[in-house]
Simulated scan of single mutants.
Amino acid sequence: MLSEEFVRGMLYLSLTIVGVPGNATVIMAFLLLIYEEKRLLAADAIILHLACTNLLVVVVRCLLESLASFHLANVFGDAGCKAVIFIFRTSRALSIWLTFLLSAYQCLSIAPPGSRWATARAIVAQYLVFVFLFLWVLNATMSQAAIFFTLSTKNDSSLTKNAVNVQFCLVNFPSKLSKDINGAAQVGRDVVPMSLMTLASLVILVLLYKHSQQVKGLRSVSGTGGGSGGAEQRAAKVVVVLVTMYVILYGVDNGLWVYTLTVRKTMSSSLISDLRVFFASLYAALSPLVIIVSNRKVNSRLRCSAQEKPVLEKTRNPSTL
């Protein structure tokens, strides 16, 4: 096994080991919440959808890449390449838009009650299913180039100089114009939600700052302590952390994508592709850890599951009592 393949496989395997259990844990916790309470708040539904999308990113890209790097399995034929690249690009972009949706909804949640933003929040919650459907259709439509232009590296006899190397697959654009248009569309699809979520996070920070100043004023008047701001303020801080992670990691990813489009001899080396996939998948692997640590609903379900296990074991083995 080549050392380069081993390093690549270990990198993708590390993301798989972190990302699959992490996202599966978040999904399980919210499924337990649905089972217990028979409902799910809009913010929780967005986080659940985000975890499902991130799990899809890690499984489709990182797991398959690691298996192929270790020569354990290889699905990267022509049909496999089309499916993997299409699903990865769609789910990756959907993860970005869902992070923006979460930040925007949280921004509306901490707005002053009785304002018009409260009405907007209620409308978003009411039509959340249609928002999800719209985002799926939008991102799937914008990822169609992967179906038309992707082929396996085994079938590289008809390559053009506009082909982009994505390790086991090649995106073989028929012309430089189609390559540039597709690249600009992908960058634009990512920059728009990134800009919007950054703006929403700044608004959240301003609102949190104003709230902290109000709390300090009340404390100075009453001479008593106060709470930290409630669940909505804690959730808003978590959203800011997730957005910051996204801006850093996907900013690197998009910078590498622009480099891929502008530098000529990128197709001959897969290093840029490996770095792009790694940084694009890093958010999908790390974000559930932030949710597990900070989300009280997830924590409470995990603690209940952990406490029920020894009780069940003692029930099955009464002699240990």
Rank of each mutant, 00 (worst) to 15 (best):
L2P: 15
S3V: 13
S3A: 15
E5W: 08
G9L: 00
Y12E: 10
T16M: 01
V18W: 02
G19N: 01
L32C: 13
Y35G: 09
Y35L: 12
K38Q: 09
D44L: 04
A45T: 14
A45P: 13
T53L: 05
F76G: 00
D78Q: 01
K82Y: 00
I87R: 01
R89H: 13
L98F: 10
L108W: 00
A111I: 02
P112S: 04
P113G: 03
R116S: 12
R116L: 09
R121W: 05
I123E: 07
V124Y: 04
A125N: 06
L128E: 03
L133V: 13
L138S: 07
S152D: 07
N155Q: 14
S158T: 12
S158C: 15
A163N: 06
N165E: 02
N165G: 11
F168S: 03
F173G: 07
P174I: 01
S175G: 03
K179E: 08
D180S: 10
Q186I: 14
S195G: 14
A200M: 10
L202R: 09
L202P: 14
V203W: 06
Y209Q: 11
H211V: 14
S212Q: 03
L218W: 06
G225Y: 02
G226R: 01
E232F: 11
E232C: 13
V241P: 14
V243D: 01
V252S: 03
D253W: 04
N254W: 07
V263F: 12
R264Y: 12
K265E: 10
K265M: 11
T266D: 06
S270H: 14
R276C: 14
F278W: 05
L289N: 00
V290P: 05
V293T: 11
R296Q: 10
N299L: 12
P310Y: 00
P310D: 00
V311M: 08
